[in-house]
Amino acid sequence: MRRGAVVISENEPPRELFIVQSGWLHASVVLGNGSRQIMRFYFQGDILGLPLLAFADSPETVTAVTDVTLCPFSRERLAALIADHPRIGALLLGLTVADRVSLADRLASVGRTSARARVGALLCDIFARMRRLGLGPDESIHLPLTQEEIGDATGLTAVHVNRMMRALVEDGIIERANNHVRLLDEKRLVAEANFIDRTAIETGWLPPAR
């Protein structure tokens, strides 16, 4: 699917779930005043549409940030997989709980921290998740997000986002060029953003594989 394509629409009945094979997407909701709040970004390996397991209609819209490749599957197929492999079902439960905690972190950041800390926390989260996909600690990432999208994820205007990004560059915390971002002083950014890496989850309790 091409950049900007709507994969799942808010308030519409579910069709399919998807596994992201490549590309970036985000999940968002439209508020009463017409503004948009981006709740989460999705990368390679993530599952789209898990809220469809709990509700008749989708509570969010999922949109492609870049060109994406997706693998669709039905809820019934997932149910059969869990029945045959309970360990996978338990792992999905753990991942869903971790996602809820990560969303709570984002809520606390947007509601109670400075604009700079919000932008910093988002950057830290993206880098942490990219490293789970194999990005080395000293590498830069391609950041395909517009300032408006970063603003919608952090509760800021595009102008404010631009100002915060420039400040992080001027203070020697990040380096930015041609839509690529490199962390120069990650320890300082993590401290300023009060960021906690939620990408590693506990798996010792999972039932044995069949």
Score class of each variant (00 low, 15 high):
Asp152Met: 15
Ala56Val: 03
Leu17Val: 03
Phe127Trp: 03
His180Asn: 11
Pro14His: 06
Glu139Pro: 02
Asp46Ile: 03
Asn11Tyr: 04
His142Gln: 13
Thr157Met: 09
Glu148Gly: 06
Ala54Arg: 00
Val62Cys: 07
Ile141Lys: 02
Leu53Ala: 07
Asn162Val: 01
Ala27Tyr: 02
Leu145Ile: 09
Met165Leu: 15
Asp67Asn: 05
Ala79Glu: 12
Ala158Asp: 14
Pro86Phe: 08
Arg87Phe: 01
Val119Lys: 05
Leu93Pro: 01
Ala108Asp: 10
Arg75Glu: 04
Arg188Phe: 01
Arg118Gly: 07
Ala104Asp: 10
Ala98Gly: 08
Pro59Ile: 02
Leu189Ser: 02
Glu202Tyr: 08
Arg106Ala: 15
Thr203Met: 13
Trp24Cys: 02
Ala108Val: 00
Leu92Ser: 03
Ala115Gln: 05
Ser74Asp: 01
Ala64His: 03
Val161Tyr: 07
Ala193Asp: 07
Gly111His: 01
Leu156Asp: 15
Gly111Gln: 06
Ser114Trp: 05
Val20Cys: 09
Phe43Gly: 15
Arg15Asn: 15
Arg132Pro: 09
Pro137Met: 11
Ile88Val: 14
Ala177Val: 06
Arg100Phe: 13
Pro86Ser: 08
Arg131Cys: 08
Met165Cys: 02
Arg40Lys: 10
Ala177Met: 09
Gly204Cys: 09
Gly89Arg: 05
Leu78Asn: 01
Pro14Lys: 02
Leu17Ala: 07
His142Thr: 13
Gly32Cys: 03
Gln37Val: 13
Asp105Ile: 00
Arg87Val: 09
Gly45Lys: 01
Arg36Asp: 11
Leu156Gln: 15
Arg87Met: 10
Arg198Ala: 04
Asn162Thr: 09
Gly89Phe: 12
Pro51Asn: 06
Ala191Arg: 12
Ile8Val: 11
Val7Tyr: 14
Pro86Ala: 07
Ala177Tyr: 08
Trp205Cys: 09
Gln147Thr: 13
Ser22Lys: 14
Leu107Pro: 00
Met165Ala: 07
Met39Val: 05
Val119Ile: 15
Val159Gln: 13
Val190Arg: 15
Arg118Phe: 05
Asp57Asn: 13
Asn162Arg: 12
Leu189Gly: 01
Asp67Thr: 00
Leu206Gly: 10
Arg15Phe: 12
Ala98Phe: 00
Arg182Lys: 10
Leu135Asn: 11
Leu103Phe: 11
Ala56Tyr: 01
Asp185Tyr: 00
Ala54Val: 05
His85Asn: 14
Leu122Pro: 03
Ala90Asp: 11
Arg87Cys: 09
Arg3His: 08
Thr199Leu: 09
Asp197Thr: 06
Cys124Asp: 12
Ile38Trp: 05
Asn179Ser: 09
Phe73Thr: 14
Leu145Met: 13
Ser58Cys: 07
Ala158Val: 05
Glu76Pro: 01
Ile19Gln: 06
Ile88Thr: 13
Pro207Phe: 04
Val62Trp: 00
Ala167Glu: 13
Pro144Ser: 11
Leu122Ser: 06
Ala167Trp: 00
Phe127Cys: 07
His26Asn: 12
Arg163Asp: 09
Pro72Lys: 10
Leu184Cys: 11
Asp197His: 04
Ser102Gln: 14
Pro208Ile: 14
Arg15His: 14
Glu139Leu: 10
Pro59Leu: 04
Leu135Val: 15
Pro144Glu: 10
Asp185His: 03
Gly32Lys: 06
Leu70Glu: 05
His85Asp: 15
Leu17Phe: 00
Ile126Leu: 15
Met165Glu: 02
Gly34Lys: 11
Thr63Trp: 05
Leu206Val: 08
